[in-house]
Design a protein around this nucleic acid. Structure first.
Lengths: 350, 350
DNA sequence: CTGAAAGCGCTAACAG
DNA sequence: CTGTTAGCGCTTTCAG
């Protein structure tokens, strides 16, 4: 009942535990780190002492010697946009694709006990902050999501020497290993499907053309059309949002009223396009067959349910996490990139 | 041109810089930490040496002595759900409200140079991992977003003694300071507005009733109705998603076909409700006036544009960040919570 | 299998 | 204004 019974202001250290258990710091350390070479009896004493003192390892001290933090960063890099209406953060988090990526990463990281810090980069300033954060050794590695072509971050990141993997194709400049889906093949599958449905007047709503993925899908679309001997390719650019898809559909329709097939570069935009079609009194798929891309939740929320190209986003993200973890553990040369194949998911819209 | 010219395998330390600059470690430390008490001439020499060696401070070593990491965590805690269709991560990131919170936090954190690690918690396991992460001293404090009533996390977090602030009301148990909007007042403003439009048959689409915010809005709705002498209150529960709103609207309509006013507890659900109304041939606001909640982007994407209750989400989040930073710096008793007032934003739907 | 001892890289008194 | 001197708490050889 003396002052000593008060909870210590200073958190317990390894030293404290060692004293209570009557062993050396080294032994406590072994127990904490689950080393097998400890006498069961001592192990018990140490565990009791840990319990009694409420000991929690100090991460900084540990990192200082191990040079590991046992955590990684997820870096999301977007191009700068200063317009309030579509602020960066809102866009990223509203995109269902992003949620799926996070889900896939966590599937691997969680069981491994590796926490993930999310870092957002959208201008020079935040980029500098991020690089400094990474270089100071706050994390052991990073997964980078970078959607726009002119992003300097992949290059800068690779120069830090920190283990890193890109989720998505880094605009050709493969300075880092990446995980990606074969976008062109996906577009081709969409077109092939529309053609098999006897559609010949096929248009497309694309994503922003400064995003490699959007470009690839358009390229695939064009090539597939050409392969079927179709030369006309009505196109409208969207911005990967639902509202943008609705708007692009209006433009497409006003210039090409006779379309009977449509490939939309994302389900979210397709959802918007479908709304426009409904309001114009066009029936799907009777008047115009529609194929989306992603196979996200949006595809199911569509009326009618959307036929779409599935990218195995979660699996890809999980693979990215595995590659990164492997790279961190092995400290070897960066692993090879891996390309996944998309699949056609047939529902009611085409 | 000897072996010594090779880039060092070992990153430069303060010691290296000191040697190159011909000063002591302490002086280099002072320069790195921008202490004013350094002779300009020496300062230059040190800066050159830093440049030459490519020195970057080691965060672990620094944290070990300062007991600070200069970073914080954003903890998002959701109730467990194991159904694939609505996986946790997808839900969180698809919610525009969340994006706004992050934006508001970053507004304060970025200029302060404080990185934010995003941590997701949705089950016992991830909760344990989170607490361990926090206790090991990975971050200096945490902002918690916890939307469901029975969440044990606020309590557990408060027991760690780590500085923390809750964004949103923690289900009454105010063990931690929080920042919140007056939900009931918001609901009252919506009802008052509908009544001023001569509507008397007013229904509501609520959020999940295990979420305090949703409950508060419903309570406010009931009280406001009562204040106007209206006793009937048609209600349907939604899940804060667009599809859920559309579905709730269908149920509401089938049981109460004569509604002429509607309060929806979120813009996203209102967007869905509007779609249902359109398909039923009901005109808004002529046949039924609709008021949403949030004033998110969804409100503008609505057809017609949605009259809604604006919560100053970004400002609230910014305030939460300020409270947290203050608490970390001052190491004082937790600050008081703060309540913000909502406002009515009149557009075309009511 | 266990303990002693040597740092990891940095900041913070404290003298000078 | 600058340098010296102690550690911060932990892991890790290396002997025993």
């Amino acid at each position: 009942m003396s002052v000593d019974d008060l909870r210590p202001v200073r958190p317990a250290t390894l030293e404290d535990v060692a004293r209570v258990a009557g062993v050396s710091r080294a032994t406590v350390s072994r127990v904490v780190n689950a080393r097998p070479t400890v006498d069961p009896a001592l192990r018990r004493k140490v565990q009791d002492a840990i319990e009694a003192t409420g000991y929690v390892p100090n991460q900084a001290a540990r990192s200082l010697v191990t040079r590991r933090t046992d955590s990684i960063a997820l870096v999301v890099s977007e191009r700068e946009r200063r317009d309030v209406a579509a602020s960066f953060v809102g866009r990223v988090f509203t995109d269902p694709h992003f949620g799926r990526v996070v889900g896939g990463l966590l599937e691997v990281l969680r069981p491994a006990g590796v926490p993930m810090a999310l870092m957002l980069v959208d201008d020079e300033d935040s980029r500098r902050q991020l690089l400094s954060y990474l270089r100071r050794g706050h994390v052991d590695g990073a997964v980078l999501i970078s959607s726009h072509a002119s992003d300097p971050l992949p290059q800068l990141l690779s120069e830090t020497g920190l283990p890193a993997v890109i989720a998505g194709n880094p605009a050709g400049s493969a300075t880092l290993p990446y995980v990606e889906v074969d976008q062109r093949a996906g577009a081709r599958m969409a077109v092939d499907h529309l053609v098999s449905l006897e559609r010949r007047r096929i248009g497309t709503i694309t994503g922003p053309q400064d995003m490699p993925a959007a470009r690839e899908r358009l390229t695939g679309f064009h090539r597939a059309l050409a392969a079927h001997g179709i030369s006309d390719a009505p196109t409208a650019e969207g911005d990967f949002t639902q509202a943008g898809g609705a708007e692009a559909m209006r433009r497409l329709l006003s210039e090409h009223p006779g379309l009977d097939g449509l490939f939309v570069a994302s389900d979210l935009m397709a959802q918007g396009a479908l709304l426009t079609l409904e309001r114009r009194g066009l029936r799907v798929p009777h008047d115009i067959a529609v194929v989306g891309f992603d196979d996200s939740e949006a595809a199911l929320a569509c009326e009618p349910p959307l036929t779409t190209i599935r990218q195995p986003v979660e699996e890809m993200a999980a693979e990215a996490a595995r590659l990164l973890l492997g790279q961190i553990t092995a400290r070897e040369a960066p692993p090879a990139s891996s390309i996944f194949r998309p699949t056609l998911v047939e529902r009611a819209s085409a």
